[in-house]
Nucleic acid binder design. Structure first.
Lengths: 226, 226
DNA sequence: AAAGAATTTACACACGTTTTACACCCCGCA
DNA sequence: TGCGGGGTGTAAAACGTGTGTAAATTCTTT
């Protein structure tokens, strides 16, 4: 847990967003949607850093922050929507290391996290190992994350595997049958048109991607070579 | 043969799949669909590694494995569909180096193969990107791409297959019937003039190509020899 | 039961293939 | 050397098939 970033927010939406951006950078993450659970998790095994929303059901962020500070000096980044909270965060010396106003830019969050970890002289976790990069597209196979122009795109299982298969063999043409074999398993009995549908989803989600998924008429698909 | 991976499975489908993945990684492959043939091949000239299905017609995988072990310590990866076979593979010390349960992920197979070869300190052969080059013409069979003077030319399915057929047998004359058999399939019932039309398309698209497609009057076509 | 994902279906339309048609060319033969 | 018949080149029409995509349906997961 000590190499993990804990994200505490009552909106799952925001957690997902932060999670995604942080994981792309190689951070491990955990999350909680209420103050009580969060505090429990923190005291149980302190994380590397905490991203903490002020507005929480049950125990609010102020309270969590105060109780954590009684036990630990783990870095905390506060999130708040109300601009008049900012004065209190900064002025009251609650012990937060930094803050962000909602709505926040997730890249800004990443930058702050890195800055704080650098400052507190704890190194971020090991750099992400394998990456496949073509044009403005990056694929992190073991994290199962894809980015276009650095912006993460959330893909479903089949979509990801499909893209990965094409990317691992850039330029080579795959028939629908071959793709079914590889991505769906060679015992899959369904329609080859299933592949088309997932390709369509990929193209839609990865709009703007530079090496495009090219249709080879009458044959199949391939990841474009320049 | 000592740089080749032998795949033994009664399903051609599976052989093709494994073959494809291994060849993309630069491995040479060979295959057999029954135990007797496989054993013959192995004893005749031992391969670099063997991927061996347990379920085989004639002589099963257990028997093949045992007989091979009497002669050689060539690495063996076992394939099995039945989970209760796994205990036997591992427990009975049959001498298999690794195993995979069917249906297996072909990427997993590649990973295992690489791992074993690394362990046995034999390096995998360098990946080869197959290219056929004559004069200023290059053909990339698995990419289904053709270039003239390095500039890619987009061909349709029939055009590509036609050119590839001629290129793979440079200089030999193909009758229209032969070409129909090879490119269109032996059950094609149409006109032989269809070939002419596609040849015309090829000549038009590949204008400037150095070895030309030559008409052999009253016979058929061939790819020119300088 | 509800939500989410995967798969199938349906249909419009783009695209490739095959046929057709006609001009031209090769070659044997007077 | 000129003639004729079948062989070949090629444009364009006719045809059939492949593909993109939305929406419906089925399957999974919670």
């Amino acid at each position: 847990m000590s190499d993990t970033i804990l994200i505490v927010d009552d909106e799952q939406h925001i957690i997902d967003l932060a999670k995604m951006y942080l994981e792309v950078e190689g951070f491990k993450t955990a999350s909680a949607t209420d103050g009580k659970t969060a505090l429990q998790m923190i005291l149980d095994d302190t994380p590397q850093l905490i991203v903490l929303d002020l507005m929480l059901p049950g125990m609010d962020g102020w309270e969590v922050c105060r109780r954590v500070r009684a036990e630990s000096d783990v870095p905390i980044i506060m999130l708040t929507a109300r601009s008049d909270d900012i004065d209190r965060i900064v002025g009251l010396e609650l012990g937060a290391d930094d803050y962000l106003t909602k709505p926040f830019n997730p890249r800004e969050l990443v930058a702050r996290v890195k800055a704080i970890l650098r400052r507190t002289e704890r190194k971020p976790t090991a750099p992400t190992d394998t990456v496949l990069t073509f044009g403005n597209l990056s694929i992190y196979p073991e994290r199962r994350i894809v980015t276009v122009d650095g912006k993460p795109v959330s893909l479903r299982v089949k979509e990801f595997d499909l893209l990965l298969t094409l990317a691992e063999n850039k330029g080579v043409v795959f028939t629908r049958e071959k793709l079914l074999d590889v991505v769906w398993g060679y015992d899959f009995a369904g329609e080859t048109r299933t592949v088309d549908v997932h390709i369509a989803h990929l193209r839609h989600k990865l709009k703007g991607m530079r090496p495009t998924i090219e249709t080879v008429w009458g044959v199949g698909y391939r990841l474009d070579v320049e």
